[in-house]
Nucleic acid binder design. Structure first.
Length: 805
DNA sequence: CCGCTTGAAATA
DNA sequence: ATTTCAAGCGGT
C-alpha cells in the first residue's frame, strides 16, 4: 500500500492551517518521517512551496488525486516528537498558525527560500522575446522589484502560454565544510610503505608516520594534519594519488566563543544555597514534575545554585536548558556556565550569525551539546532527555514574544518540564506577581535565598525628593546628595553606575510660546533629539528630520528641548565632574555588534569611573569596585497607563540597586524621584520584596487585574482610523455573546500610542476568570479576520499581553 | 458581447 | 502566498 504524507504547507493562512495529503514517492517509502521538511507542488500551476511532514499514513480522507512530494530536504527529522507536539500546543495556545509556530522553533537557516524565474516558451514572438528577454535567458521574477506594467504584461504572456514561471527552492542550511583526510590503509600497511619510500621524499615518510597513528576512516581536518605532520598540502595530494589516504568533505562547527574561558570548580554553598540544590536535585531524581521559584536577593548566589543543579542533571546523563533574558546583556552569565561545563555548552541568541546559530543548533540536535544557554527562543532548543530547565530573571518581559506566535517562554518551559518529567526552576530577586502568586498557591516550591553570599550587607538606599531638590538646584539632573556621593567615589577611585530610566520618556522639542511639540508624521509620538546625528528621530518607525530652529506652528524662535536623554546627561555630568572618565551605554552607543560587551569590559577594567546608561545596565553586572548606584529619575514609568507600572518600577530599582557593593566594600544607592511616597519606591528602598508582593497583590485584587484575572487583548489596526475603530466595535459585539457577565471588557479604546507607522490601533482587553466559550469566540474572530486582512485591516489576539498600552 | 479589472476561492 | 475562477462594467 502506497504511503501518504500529511504535509503542513508554508502558507500561513487560516485556510491552510491543516495538513494536506501527498503521495510519497517509492524511493521515500518508509523513509519519510514526521518532522522532516519537504517541497511539494501547491496550487494549480507548478508552484512549489516548502512544508513540514506532520504525519505518515496509509489512508487519507481526501478523495481526489494526490500529488507526489517533489523533494525531501532532510534525512532525519528537524523536529523531534516533543517539538512537534509542542508546536501544536503553541498554535492552539497563542492563536497562531501551526506552520508559523514551527518556523519560530527552527533556526533561521532551516527556512527555505523560494526564488522565481520567468522563461520564454516556444510560442513567444521574436518581438516579445527581444523586449522581455534581451539575452534570451530566463530572468528573475520578483513582482516587488518590477514595475506594475511589466508584471501585467508578463502575466498576460503567461496566460497566452508564451512564457512560464520556474521555481527554485533553495535550502539555505549549508553547513560550513573543510577538507578532511583519513587513512585508507591499516597502520601496518602504511609502515611497510614508509620503509620503501625514496630517501629524497622525507615529507612523504612524515605523512605516512602521521597516518599510522590516526584511526582508519576517521577523517581529520587537512589543516590539522598539515600542521601536525609538518608537511605541505602538496604531500597530502601525493598521498591521495598513491591511495594511502582519502580526502573527504568534513563539516565544521563555527565556534561563537571567540575567547577561551578559564574552567571553574563548584564553590562552597551557604546553607540556603545547599538547601535549594538539595531540593532541586530530589526533583530531578523524582518522577513527579516539581517546579521551583528561587527567590534570591541580588548577590545571593543564584547562579551557583543553577550551576550545581545542572551538574546533577548532567551526571544522570540528562541535559539542561538555561534561559536568560537577553544574552547580549548578560555575557558574564554565559561565561560562568561555559567556564563550568566547557565544550558541552551551546549558546543560542540573536547576536550570533545565522551560520553560528545553525551550528549551535546542530550541536544540540546531535547531542554534542548537553547544556544550552539562550534567550527566549532557546526554549525551543532540540535538547533531548531534558533533566532541568532554568529560567533566570523570570520576571523579565523579554521572555514574552510580542509578535506571533505571542508565546511566553515561561509557559513553554513549564510545558517542556512536564513532557520531560523534569523540574523547571524560575529564579529572580523580584519574581513576577504571577509566579509568586502561583508559589503561594503551592504550584511552585519556594526556595528563598535571603542573604547575600559571605553575608555581605545589602546596599544602603537613599531616596532623594526631587520636588525639594528642584528648589535649590533648578532643573539640573543631579541632586546635591548624589553629587557629593559621586565626588566621594571619584576621590576613593571607586566606580559609579548611573541609570537614566527612559521608559516612556525622552527628550523632545517644545515651543515655549505656543506649546507645540514636534511629532513624527507617521506615528503619534514626539520625536527624540539626537545630538550625535544632529537630527530628530522617531523611536518607533525610524523617521528622521532636521532639528527645527523656529517653531513650525507659530514661527517663534523659543523652541527648546525638554526632558532628559543620556547624551544630554553625559554632557552635564562631564561639566560637573571634568576629570571623571564617563562611559555611556544606551541604544545608540551599543548599536554595533559587540559594542555592548566592549563597554562592559572597559568598565570592568576600570578604564572609566562612571557608567551612565539606560535600564540595560540594571541587569547582571557584577563589578566589585562599584560602590555607588544612582537612579536619576526613578518614576518615569510610574505614570504609564499600564497596570504593571509599579511592578516594573520596583523590579528595576531593586535590580539596579543590587549592582552596588557586590564585594567587600559596602554599597550605597541614591534614588531620585518626584514620588518619594509611592509604595513601589518606598519598598524598593527597604528592598522588601515580600511587602511589595502583598501590597501590589491588594492593588491587583482591587482593580481586577492579573494574577487575579486572566487577560486577553485583541487589537485591530488600519490606515483609516474609522475602519480600525469600526472593526473593533464589531469584534467586541461578537465576543460579548460568548462572555458571561463575570467578564470585564475594557474598551474598545485607541491604544496609548494610537498611531504607529501610519496605522491606527484600536484595542480591547478582556479580563476574566472562567469563560469556557471565550476560546471558541476568539477562534471565530481569527477566522473572520482572514477576509478583511486583504484590505489592510490587521487583527491580532494576544493572550496575557505584557503591554496594555 | 467581449475584454479587462477586481475580488473571492482554492490549493491535496 | 499565489494562482485560478467569477462577477461586474465600460467600451464596442
Amino acid at each position: 500500500m502506497a504511503q501518504i504524507g500529511q504535509i503542513l504547507v508554508d502558507v500561513p493562512t487560516m485556510q491552510t492551517n491543516d495538513p494536506y495529503s501527498y503521495a510519497i514517492p517509492a524511493e521515500w517509502e518508509h523513509q519519510l518521517q514526521a518532522g522532516m521538511r519537504v517541497i511539494v507542488p501547491f496550487g494549480r500551476g507548478h508552484r512549489m512551496v516548502d512544508g513540514v511532514v506532520v504525519g505518515v499514513s496509509d489512508v487519507t480522507s481526501f478523495d481526489g488525486t494526490l500529488k507526489p512530494i517533489e523533494a525531501v530536504l532532510d534525512l532525519s527529522p528537524v523536529l523531534n516528537e516533543e517539538l512537534q507536539r509542542l508546536a501544536d500546543w503553541l498554535a492552539d495556545e497563542t492563536f497562531a498558525f501551526r506552520i508559523t509556530c514551527i518556523q519560530t522553533m527552527l533556526p533561521n537557516l532551516l527556512k527555505t527560500k523560494t526564488e522565481r524565474e520567468i522563461a520564454p516558451l516556444a510560442a513567444i514572438t521574436p518581438a516579445e522575446k527581444a523586449q522581455y528577454f534581451p539575452d534570451g535567458e530566463p530572468r528573475p521574477f520578483d513582482p516587488d522589484k518590477l514595475d506594475d506594467g511589466t508584471v501585467a504584461n508578463l502575466l498576460k504572456l503567461q496566460r497566452a502560454g508564451k512564457v512560464t514561471v520556474l521555481y527554485h527552492v533553495k535550502n539555505q542550511a549549508a553547513a560550513k565544510t573543510t577538507v578532511g583526510v583519513a587513512p585508507l590503509l591499516p597502520p601496518a600497511k602504511l609502515a611497510e610503505i614508509q620503509a620503501t619510500v625514496a630517501k629524497r621524499a622525507p615529507k612523504q615518510a612524515d605523512l605516512l608516520a602521521y597516518l599510522q597513528q590516526m584511526v582508519p576512516k576517521q577523517p581529520q581536518p587537512q589543516a590539522k594534519v598539515v600542521k601536525a605532520a609538518g608537511i605541505s598540502s602538496a604531500v597530502i595530494n601525493t598521498g591521495a594519488e598513491k591511495g594511502w589516504l582519502e580526502k573527504s568533505t568534513l563539516e565544521v562547527y563555527r565556534d561563537p566563543f571567540h575567547q577561551p574561558v578559564k574552567p571553574t570548580q563548584p564553590l562552597t554553598l551557604n546553607p540556603d544555597q545547599a538547601k535549594a540544590v538539595t531540593a532541586i536535585t530530589a526533583a530531578i531524581d523524582g518522577d513527579e514534575t516539581q517546579n521551583f521559584l528561587v527567590e534570591g536577593v541580588t548577590g545571593s548566589g543564584k547562579t551557583e545554585v543553577y550551576l550545581q543543579s545542572i551538574a546533577v542533571a548532567l551526571r544522570q546523563k540528562r541535559t539542561a536548558l538555561m534561559l536568560v533574558p537577553e544574552i547580549a546583556l548578560t555575557p558574564q552569565m554565559v561565561n560562568r556556565v561555559k567556564a563550568r561545563f566547557g565544550e558541552q555548552v551551546a549558546v543560542l541568541h540573536s547576536g550570533l550569525s545565522k551560520g553560528e546559530q545553525y551550528d549551535e543548533w546542530r550541536r544540540i540536535d546531535s547531542g554534542a551539546a548537553t547544556v544550552v544557554v539562550g534567550a527566549r527562543s532557546a526554549v525551543f532548543a532540540p535538547v533531548k532527555n531534558v533533566g532541568l530547565i532554568i529560567m533566570d530573571e523570570e520576571h523579565e518581559s523579554s521572555y514574552k514574544q510580542d509578535e506571533t506566535p505571542r508565546y511566553h517562554a515561561r509557559d513553554v518551559a513549564l510545558w517542556r518540564g512536564k513532557y520531560n518529567h523534569c523540574p523547571v526552576v524560575l529564579g529572580s530577586a523580584t519574581p513576577s506577581l504571577e509566579s509568586r502568586a502561583r508559589a503561594a498557591k503551592g504550584l511552585y516550591t519556594r526556595l528563598v535565598l535571603p542573604k547575600r553570599v559571605n553575608d555581605r550587607p545589602l546596599p544602603t538606599v537613599h531616596i532623594v525628593d526631587m520636588r525639594e531638590e528642584m528648589k535649590s538646584i533648578g532643573d539640573s539632573d543631579f541632586s546635591t546628595p548624589l553629587v557629593s556621593a559621586i565626588q566621594e567615589r571619584l576621590d576613593r577611585h571607586e566606580q559609579v553606575v548611573l541609570m537614566l530610566n527612559r521608559r516612556g520618556y525622552s527628550s523632545f522639542v517644545m515651543c515655549r510660546d505656543c506649546g507645540f511639540v514636534l511629532k513624527c508624521p507617521n506615528c503619534d509620538i514626539s520625536l527624540t533629539l539626537h545630538m550625535d546625528s544632529h537630527s530628530m528621530k522617531c523611536h518607533y518607525c525610524g523617521h528622521e528630520e532636521a532639528i527645527p530652529k523656529i517653531c513650525p506652528n507659530c514661527h517663534s524662535h523659543k523652541i527648546r528641548y525638554y526632558g532628559t536623554g543620556t547624551q544630554k546627561v553625559e554632557t552635564a555630568l562631564q561639566a560637573q565632574f571634568p576629570t571623571a572618565r564617563i562611559l555611556r551605554m544606551d541604544v545608540d552607543s551599543t548599536r554595533r555588534k559587540g559594542s555592548h560587551e566592549r563597554i562592559l569590559k572597559q568598565f570592568g577594567n576600570h578604564e572609566a569611573d562612571i557608567l551612565l546608561g539606560t535600564q540595560m545596565i540594571a541587569k547582571g553586572l557584577d563589578y566589585p569596585n562599584v560602590t555607588l548606584v544612582g537612579v536619576l529619575n526613578a518614576d518615569t514609568a510610574l505614570g504609564l497607563p499600564d497596570f504593571r507600572a509599579s511592578e516594573r518600577t520596583f523590579q528595576l530599582l531593586t535590580q539596579v540597586s543590587g549592582r552596588a557593593g557586590r564585594s567587600t566594600k559596602p554599597g550605597e544607592v541614591f534614588i531620585q524621584t518626584f514620588n518619594p511616597d509611592h509604595y513601589a519606591i518606598q519598598l524598593a528602598q527597604s528592598q522588601d520584596y515580600e511587602r511589595f508582593f502583598v501590597t501590589e497583590m491588594a492593588m491587583r485584587h482591587q482593580g481586577s487585574y492579573p494574577p487575579y484575572y486572566f487577560a486577553v487583548q485583541v487589537t485591530a489596526s488600519h490606515e483609516d482610523e474609522a475602519v480600525a475603530a469600526k472593526a473593533m466595535y464589531q469584534i467586541v459585539d461578537a465576543l460579548k455573546l460568548d462572555l458571561s457577565d463575570q467578564a470585564i471588557v475594557l474598551g474598545p479604546t485607541p491604544k496609548a500610542i494610537a498611531r504607529v507607522k501610519r496605522k491606527y490601533y484600536y484595542q480591547v482587553v478582556i479580563k476574566y476568570k472562567n469563560e469556557p466559550d471565550l476560546k471558541a469566540g476568539l477562534e471565530q474572530i481569527r477566522q473572520a479576520a482572514q477576509i478583511p486582512a486583504r484590505h489592510g485591516l490587521a487583527v491580532t489576539i494576544d493572550p496575557e499581553p505584557m503591554n496594555f498600552m
